Computed example of a mutant assay.
Amino acid sequence: MIRIGLTGSIGMGKSTTANMFAAAGVPVHDADATVHALYAGRAAPLIEAAFPGTVVDGRVDRKRLSPHVLGKPEVMKRLEAIVHPLVREEEEAFLTAARLARRRIVVMDIPLLFETAGENRVDMAVVVTADPEIQKQRVLARADMTEDRFHAILERQMPDGEKRRRAHFLVDTGLGMEPARRQVRAILRALAACQ
């Protein structure tokens, strides 16, 4: 089974690209969705213990958590030490199910693939990219985003150029949906030819 690590900086179109792989019949494990579920479940009491006042009605309130960790690398590491092992457990369950179903290719949608040494858990990296102007425009169009928050998030992420250099394949979403879809299909054809 080939494990594709799908990654890309904020606003590059990674979630849209993950949906394209899923539409092509490839199982996708979404780390962000897993974190979201954990924030409403197993992780909530652990995060509340470490960051009091950040859980409301049994779920982590990201707006309350954000000021505790953004721009504070050491504090962010404390949060990651709570959340990352739980995400890995969910990831392993996904991979086990995919192996039992005899899937030939799976996608691991991991936002901080290189930043967390996640490339060691996959067979290859697909990096989703776009021009910086397009990235900024997409991110700042989000309702809860500010220029400061955008730059704080970028600080935590490896520069796009370095991600591109480490990639086995690129998907450029700045060209539009159909060209991105064609790039995804080309990647899947290339991998099928290798099996």
Rank of each mutant, 00 (worst) to 15 (best):
M12T: 15
M12D: 09
G13M: 10
G13P: 12
K14F: 07
K14W: 06
T17G: 06
M20V: 10
M20E: 12
M20S: 12
M20C: 12
A22K: 15
A23F: 12
A24R: 15
P27N: 11
P27Y: 06
P27S: 13
V28A: 10
H29N: 07
A31W: 10
A33Q: 14
T34K: 04
V35L: 00
L38R: 10
A40V: 05
A43F: 02
A44T: 13
L46M: 15
I47W: 04
E48N: 12
A50H: 05
P52L: 05
T54R: 02
R59L: 08
R59S: 11
V60S: 03
K63A: 15
L65A: 08
S66P: 06
P67V: 05
P67H: 08
H68P: 00
V69E: 07
L70G: 01
G71W: 01
K72L: 01
E74A: 00
V75C: 02
M76L: 15
R78K: 04
R78S: 00
R78F: 00
E80L: 01
A81G: 12
A81K: 07
I82G: 01
I82C: 00
I82R: 00
V83I: 14
H84T: 00
P85K: 04
L86A: 03
L86E: 05
L86P: 05
V87M: 12
R88D: 10
E89M: 07
E90R: 13
E90K: 08
E90P: 00
E91F: 13
A93E: 15
L95G: 11
T96E: 11
R99N: 04
R99T: 06
L100E: 14
R102D: 15
R102M: 09
R103S: 13
R104I: 02
R104T: 13
R104K: 15
V106E: 09
V106R: 09
D109Y: 02
I110V: 14
L112M: 12
L112R: 04
L113F: 02
T116N: 13
T116P: 01
G118Y: 00
E119C: 05
E119D: 15
V122E: 04
V126E: 02
V126S: 00
V127E: 05
V127Q: 03
V128T: 14
V128M: 11
T129M: 10
T129R: 03
A130D: 11
D131W: 06
E133W: 10
E133P: 01
I134W: 03
K136V: 00
Q137A: 15
L140M: 13
A141V: 07
A141M: 12
R142P: 07
A143N: 07
D144C: 08
M145D: 02
T146P: 08
E147S: 13
R149N: 09
F150C: 03
A152L: 15
I153K: 03
I153G: 03
L154R: 09
